[in-house]
């Protein structure tokens, strides 16, 4: 088993003006020391609510944003200190699938051109063979050949997402990052796309990072789970370890909410954000020591958690 991706202590800070006319700036820690590893053929699900930093993490790994600290090693190479030319060549090994298939496909291009473009750009196939290759890719994502001449507006959301997935497969990547790939689809279509991801996983050796706020979906596609809250990893581990024996109060709350059991606790707004645990204000199991410092991520590779209540 080869390691595809290793992220160590990743940091990303955004500066935000305090108000429209203010010169003072607030610093927002979008990522605070996030680490994760991903092996060939494995899928890691990243869960958390909006603002937890899960999309920032995805964007930093692809270097769509420049992280402020930490290291990213992809296929054994240090991404952050790499000549531009080499990086460009390595980029075809990593692909992203976005949330909204309505805006991530070019509305003026036929499906054929959308999928053929990366094939020709990277010189993967000859111009002569490109049509066969495009057909093959469409078939792999469950679309018949009639789609080849269609425009995105002639297709439903689920069909468009299939095209986006097909496009990401064109360059035979080592890593696919899927950022909320089913959230904008109808419930009955979501299951189809989730099944497509499972097919790809079975058929190929591609490592996947599956970013989603929907635990039901993540549970289906992932081997490992990383739970993020306010830019930190609060719990991580093998899927069943995390789902069947969640340790962090935040993970427990998320799992209950996914079952339809909603917590009764309101956020304690009187608590001033200090140096303590980022989840303190909402935590059901908080103790005094949680206000003093941020709990470190402890445990084994199979299951780790950042919480003082877990010993």
């Amino acid at each position: 088993m080869g390691q595809v991706l290793s992220v160590l202590d990743l940091q990303k800070v955004y500066e935000v003006k305090r108000s429209a006319f203010s010169v003072q700036k607030d610093l927002i820690n979008a990522l605070c020391g996030v680490s994760l590893e991903l092996d060939k053929g494995k899928t890691t699900g990243i869960v958390g609510e909006s603002g937890s930093g899960k999309s920032t993490l995805a964007r930093c790994i692809l270097l769509l944003e420049r992280p402020d600290g930490g290291t990213i090693s992809f296929l054994g190479r240090d991404l952050l200190n790499m000549p531009k030319g080499e990086l460009k060549a390595l980029r075809r090994q990593m692909q992203i699938i976005f949330q909204d298939p309505y805006s991530s496909l070019n509305p003026r291009k036929r499906i054929f051109d959308t999928i053929a473009e990366p094939l020709l750009f990277h010189g993967i196939v000859d111009r002569r063979d490109v049509k066969d290759k495009v057909m093959e890719i469409l078939k792999n994502v469950g679309l018949d050949e009639d789609f080849i001449n269609k425009y995105p507006h002639e297709m439903s959301g689920g069909q468009r997402q299939r095209v986006a997935i097909g496009r990401s497969l064109t360059t035979d990547p080592a890593l696919i990052i899927a950022d909320e790939p089913v959230s904008s689809l109808d419930v009955s279509i979501q299951a189809q796309i989730v099944n497509l991801f499972l097919d790809i996983k079975e058929r190929t050796d591609i490592a996947m990072l599956f970013v989603s706020h929907d635990l039901n979906v993540v549970r289906f596609v992932s081997d490992e789970i990383v739970v993020m809250y306010k830019g930190r990893v609060v719990e991580a581990g093998l899927k069943d370890e995390v789902f069947l024996g969640p340790l962090h109060p935040y993970t427990k709350m998320l799992i209950n909410a996914a079952k339809g059991e909603y917590s009764r606790r309101e956020e304690d707004t009187s608590y001033d954000k200090g140096n303590g645990c980022p989840y303190y204000a909402r935590c059901e199991e908080r103790k005094d020591c949680c206000r003093e410092s941020v709990p470190p991520l402890t445990g084994s590779k199979d299951h780790s958690v950042a919480c003082f209540s877990v010993s």
């Binding site: 439903s156 009955s188 979501q190 299951a191 189809q192 099944n195 039901n216 996914a258």
Partner: peptide, 22 residues
């Protein structure tokens, strides 16, 4: 609909999707 969302309880390998689209 229920079988396509019934994720957390079941242990099946695939979701039972409704074929086709709305």
């Amino acid at each position: 609909l229920l079988s396509s969302i019934y994720g957390l309880a079941g242990n099946q390998k695939r979701l039972t999707a409704i074929p086709g689209s709305v």
